[in-house]
């Protein structure tokens, strides 16, 4: 079984560091990608799949997965959906605004577990954001991996993230996109993302899958991967609960015997499956 990287708390785990909003790109009607730079010094290196706690001063703090990490210090890219008081203010941040950032936290995607085998990325909705670093990582090292397959679903064509990049990625990866509903202007697939698994071109005997999205979609998507013959230990899933402190102290994000902020958010499905079947968790 592949093991996740060991958790190491970030140096700036408790005190928010000031970051400046340098760029703000609207992805969809309710989702923006913000590029942040630290007021002083360099951004912390963030591994694909890790998250940061972002503090909108005077409003509140939310966990946000990093959507642009490349294993090296770089501007912090966060793709945020405006769904609550904090994220609404976050998405409305003007260029030059200062936000507080703690982290990065948690363990990321164990991309090395894929070895030279095929990589399957299964994403639903905003779940593509934390998986974008996986795609970028593999695309930068294309010869080191087998087939790269992106299976992505969203509510409507207008809700698809990174649309320009989706077209670019088609050159080096198999990109299959579906939406829940569409008008006649949409020439792509209509259906749910787990349906894409059966027809995807990857070697289930050796491939690794990286999965993120709404938890209902996760369950059906993972079942489709298992039905294809993928081992549960090679299916990695990013989970979300009520992350608060980020360092495993407050206990709000407990999942079974683990704390998602510290031990996750990425788990292999063999480990996480028993907890996901417990409804109270």
């Amino acid at each position: 079984m592949a093991t996740a990287p060991e958790y190491v708390p970030a140096p700036g785990a408790m005190a928010p560091a000031p970051y400046v909003v340098r760029e703000r790109v609207q992805e969809t009607a309710d989702t923006w990608t913000l590029t942040l730079e630290p007021l002083d010094g360099e951004s912390a290196a963030v591994a694909p799949g890790q998250f940061v706690m972002v503090y909108v001063f005077g409003v509140g703090e939310v966990p946000i997965s990093v959507s642009g990490a490349l294993d090296r210090p770089a501007p912090l890219m966060l793709t945020v959906r405006s769904v609550g008081a904090v994220t609404q203010r976050l998405c409305a941040s003007e260029l030059g605004a200062v936000l507080g950032v703690r982290g990065p936290f948690g363990v990321g995607w164990p991309i090395a577990a894929a070895g030279r085998a095929d990589v399957v990325v299964l994403a639903g909705g905003i779940g593509l954001a934390p998986l974008r670093p996986v795609l970028l990582h593999v695309l930068e090292r294309r010869a080191e991996y087998g087939e790269l397959v992106l299976l992505y679903g969203s509510r409507t064509p207008g809700d698809l993230l990174f649309r320009a990049e989706l077209e670019l990625w088609r050159g080096a990866a198999s990109v299959d996109v579906t939406v829940d509903a569409a008008d006649l202007a949409w020439q792509g697939k209509v259906g749910v993302v787990p349906q894409l698994v059966a027809g995807a071109d990857f070697d289930a005997a050796s491939a690794s899958a990286f999965v993120c999205g709404p938890e209902i979609m996760l369950r059906f998507g993972i079942q489709a991967l298992l039905d294809r013959g993928l081992a549960a230990a090679r299916i990695f899933v990013s989970l979300e609960r009520n992350m608060r402190c980020g360092v495993g102290h407050c206990g709000h994000c407990q999942l079974g015997p683990t704390l998602i902020c510290r031990d996750g958010p990425v788990y292999d499905y063999e480990t996480a499956a028993p907890w996901l079947r417990v409804r109270a968790l």
Binding site: G124, G125, S154, R155, D180, M217
Partner: peptide, 12 residues
């Protein structure tokens, strides 16, 4: 099954 999943509007 596909219809039920979409009725749930899982991306909502």
């Amino acid at each position: 099954q596909s219809t039920r999943l979409r009725l749930l509007d899982v991306y909502g």
